[in-house]
Structure formats: C-alpha cells, structure tokens
Design a protein around this nucleic acid. Structure first.
Length: 508
RNA sequence: GCACCCGUGGCUCAACUGGAUAGAGCACCUGACUACGGAUCAGGAGGUUACAGGUUCGAAUCCUGUCGGGUGUACCA
C-alpha cells in the first residue's frame, strides 16, 4: 500500500469533456522508469505470469525434399519470436519443428528417384536434385499411368513399416534435406527444442484411429474412414482419417501428434504457426477433438499468417517458381557488407556485423506487419535498410552505444542525475514504461508485429531526441540524467531485438 | 457456387480493440552549426479509411448489402 501511494503521489487526474486525462510528474516518471530498467537490466519486461504453464509452439515445419523458400521463413521467424515472447514472460516453452517427412508425396519421390535418380547429383546438390525430380514426376505423371501406380505402391510399403529399399531411400532423402535445413536455421539463429517428423507418429497412427472410432464419431464414406462435421456448418467437409487404400492422411498424423503433445505436456496453449491456407485443416482438427468431448480443444490455436506471394503470382514448388531463402540471406548480407564498406570502412568485425545486419533486415521485414496480411515478395523491400527496418533499429542501438562510449571516455555522466531535466524526453519515458505491457499483449495475441511497431516508434523518438538533446558537455546533473536515459533505452532495444531474433551490434 | 481472410495518401503499413485534428516509412520536393556516426534528423506536398446504408453522444474499427483481391472447398501436405 505504501509503495502504491508513493507511485500515485505524482499523478493527478483531470476530467476534460468525455475524457479523463492524467497528469504525471515528469521527474517522478523519469526516475521510476529509468531506475527500474537499470535495476532489472536484461530482465526488464520479464514477468512470472507464465509460471507453471507450458506453451507448445509448432513452427517452421518444412517439407523434406523441398527447398526452404521465403514462405517457410514466415513460420520460422514468427514462431521463434512468439516462443521467445513467452520465454520472457516465464512460460515453459517447447518449440517443435514438425518436419513434413511423411505422406504420399514420398511415394512419388521414391518412384522418381528409382527411375531417374542417376540423372542428377543427389549427394552434391540434394535439394536442387530432388526438386528437379519432383517437377519431372508431375510433368510425366499424366502420360504414364505406371508412375502414379509405382508411387502409390511405394508409399504403401513405407507405411506398412517394412524396412526395405523404399525405407532406405526415404531415410537417405530425409538426412540430405535436414543437413540443408540446419544450415539455414543456424544462420537465422533459430533452435528447436524438438525436431520431429510426422513419421515419428507412425507407430501411433493405428491407436489414434482406434481412439477416434471408439469415441463413436466415425463413419465409412465412399470407402474412406471419416468424421462427419456437418453439424458445425452446412458445407464443412468431413475430416478424413483413412483413405480408401487404408493409408493415413495429414489430419490423422496431426491428430496423433496432438494427443501425444497433450499427454506429454498438458499445455496451457498449443500454437500452430502455419499459413492461413491451412485454416480449414485446423478447424477440422479442432472440431474432431470437440466431437470427442475433449475439454482441452480450445487450447489448440492455429496461429495463421498471410501468404508470401511473388509479383508474378503464387509461389509453386512444382512449377519451380520460388525464391530460395538461401539466396535472400546471401544477398542481404552482401548488401549490408557493401554499405559498411561505404559508410564505415574501418569497422572491426565487419563480416560479422554484415551478417547481423543483413539477416536482421530479412527477419525484421517478415515480422513488421500484422501476421494475417499477405506479403508480396519484393527484393527491393527486403534489401532495404532505411526507414522502418531492422537495420534502423540496430542503427539506433549502435548510436546509443556510441554516445555511451563517448560519455565514458570523457569521464562524464557520473553525477547525481536531475530527473526534472528530462522534460524533452517525456514521450520516450512513457514509451519505455509501457514495454512490459507490450510484451504481454504481443504474447497473448501471438503477434510479434506489436513489438516491432513499438520498437520502431521508440527509435523514431530516440533519434529525434538525441539530435537535439546533446548528452555530452552539459551541466553534470543534466548529462547524468540523459546518459541514464540513453543507457536504459539501449538495454531495452537490445532486449527487444533479441526477442525478435536480431542481434544488436555496438557499431555498424 | 459456398466459407473464411483482407481492402486506410502513388506504394508498404499503424491507429492502444468504439474515443480527441486518422499516424509512420518508401518514393517526390526543400533544408540540417565543418556532424556526441547523415543506415539519421527538420520541414513540405499527398486522405470522403473501396462503395451504400445502419447502430450511438461518437465508427477506419461493430451490423447488413455491394464491389475488388487472396485462400480454401473429402481420399495432397
């Protein structure tokens, strides 16, 4: 109670028309906010709201034998940011990379490798080769009925559990792909708590189907085993558990994974960071669980995001119309290196900084708009380092770092600060103070863009402020107050960037 | 056809979830003490929030309809 009184003493409320305005004592605000940040350091904004609660995040989920495109970037980067947001708030988080390593497409791939495997260099350029084979399969499929037959037979063998030639080929393709994926993950600085293919659930598929059958909600329809969902919507298609040939589908495997996760983690939320083209799929999954009467169904959330499109149309693996993530990262880092050579040629560690800034630009660009919005991939935009970009935030951080170096070198800033002198920084102080609630809200909404918008606005204010409010060479009490503001702002930017997955270089 | 999502200056996006004069960035124009680093900053120009109704003290935000774009629509994932 005493502390509450102390905090309220500098605040007065004023009624103006339909509004209630609060007037805050600025010196008090400055002292409270800055001392709070400096005391907590990197822990500022963290909380224990998530204590004892587990959040499962399903992210990235690339498909074996397909190149990682800029489309997968969204799931990876958004999912990783959402996981870190929850980490900071004290949740126990489990980031799962649910690899697409199962399904009838592997029948196709095995058939294609069988037939034309010797026409490509699988070992040296695995992804490219597999893509070429996949494309060729679809080109020749129509004119050659033996091809789909071979594909079907291969997948049936795979799903039968037989450890023969088909399985060996599948395993090999999986290993080749995973090596390629890992290279990209390490560049993005993304780590998973669990990397698990759909194939992991293979042994649980039968019991999963049995369980749903025992719930009494399945029926036979056109040779397939389905769960009818028409009670939830006239035109809602049923959820298919088994095809006519007895093999399982995507939905079956996701249900098996969902049961498995619930039993293992008893999660507070399970967040599936998957594109909005799979809305129906997740809706069906949830409705199957609801029909089974499982009360944890509402904890499963599809965190959907808009599609990445090219100016010339939708991306298509089959048509080879994709932008490879690797190329994007390479070009962004190159561009960053070029700018450093131009503007800061003496920079130590310039390669590392180029990496941090280049990757940062790509990652931030994908996090800065609301999740649900579709994104058109434009090179010029991704490679932009000015305005509302990751490098802008990194630059602001570097400038603050630079000021602090000068302050230290001059031996200034050690006096007792006079907080009342920070009047010209009022908007910054208010914003710094709001940081904890921004994190809470961004996590609750699983919306990293709330954090990116916040950081951009803060940087705008900071840049405007320090050009007109010189830190160095003022009255000791003023310089000290400003230096502390710079110090706490820098901590916060570093902190926020880390949550988004960006490094914060001291110089750039 | 049906379902869901989106529609805000030329372009890309905000707007604390129904509140005050709708804010930024890009592009364009004009500027910044021989710069606590110009990847920055100050200023200018640019809006009937797709359209038409409705709800109320008040709507970019909620409801209805129309138009435009995207996605999905049972044996792919």
């Amino acid at each position: 109670m005493g502390s509450l009184d102390a905090r309220l003493s500098g605040i007065e409320a004023v009624a103006t028309g339909p509004y209630l305005n609060f007037r805050v004592d600025r010196a008090l605000l400055a002292r409270t906010v800055i001392e709070g940040i400096l005391a907590q350091g990197d822990a500022y904004g963290s909380s224990d709201e998530g204590r004892g609660k587990t959040i499962v995040v399903d992210l990235s989920s690339p498909n074996i034998a397909k190149p990682m495109s800029v489309g997968h970037l969204r799931s990876t980067v958004i999912g990783a940011a959402i996981q870190r947001l929850h980490d900071v708030l004290g949740y126990e988080t489990i980031g799962i990379n649910h690899i697409g390593d199962w399904g009838s497409q592997f029948g196709k791939l095995v058939a294609a490798v069988d037939r034309w495997g010797d026409t490509v260099d699988l070992e040296r350029a695995p992804i490219k080769s597999l893509l070429a084979l996949y494309v060729r399969y679809h080109e020749e499929e129509e004119g050659d009925p033996s091809l789909p037959a071979a594909a079907r037979a291969a997948f049936q063998e795979l799903e039968s559990g037989e450890d023969g030639k088909v399985r060996a080929t599948w395993r090999h393709l999986t290993e080749l792909s995973m090596e390629e994926f890992d290279k990209i993950y390490s560049r993005l600085n993304v780590k998973f708590d669990l990397v698990r293919g759909e194939s992991y659930y293979e042994p649980y598929l039968d019991e999963t189907v049995d369980r749903i059958v025992e719930a009494g909600i399945t029926e036979e329809s056109e040779g397939a085993l389905v769960v009818d969902l028409s009670e939830f919507g006239k035109n809602l298609p049923p959820c298919l558990l088994r095809k006519g040939d007895g093999t399982t589908l995507y939905a079956t495997r996701d249900l098996a994974a969902a049961f498995h996760r619930w039993e293992k983690y008893h999660f507070h939320r399970a967040l599936y960071v998957v594109g909005s083209d799979q809305r129906l799929h997740f809706k069906q999954l949830k409705l199957v669980l609801r029909r089974m009467g499982l009360d944890w169904e509402p904890r499963m959330e599809h965190i959907d995001f808009g599609m990445m499109r090219l100016p010339e149309g939708k991306m298509s693996t089959r048509k080879g119309r994709v932008v490879f993530l690797e190329d994007v990262l390479d070009r962004a880092v190159e561009e960053a290196a070029k700018i450093i050579a131009e503007k800061n040629p003496g920079l130590a560690d310039s390669d590392e900084v180029a990496r941090q800034v280049g990757i940062g630009a790509v990652v931030f660009n994908d996090l800065k708009r609301e999740r649900v919005k579709d994104v058109e991939f434009v090179w010029e935009e991704v490679l932009s380092f000015e305005g509302e970009t990751g490098p802008y935030v990194q630059y602001t951080h570097a400038r603050l770092a630079s000021i602090l170096r000068k302050v230290a070198a001059a031996g200034e800033g050690e006096a007792e600060p006079d907080w009342a002198l920070l009047e010209d920084a009022a908007p910054i102080l208010v914003r710094l103070g709001r940081y904890p609630e921004v994190l809470t809200s961004a996590a609750a909404h699983a919306e990293p863009s709330e954090l990116t918008s916040y950081l951009l606005a803060l940087c705008r204010e900071l840049n405007a402020w320090y050009v007109k409010s010189r830190v160095l060479g003022g009255e000791p009490a003023l310089t000290a107050a400003r230096a502390q503001l710079v110090r706490s702002s820098k901590i916060l930017l570093h902190n926020g960037l880390a949550i988004l997955g960006l490094d914060a270089p001291e110089e750039m």
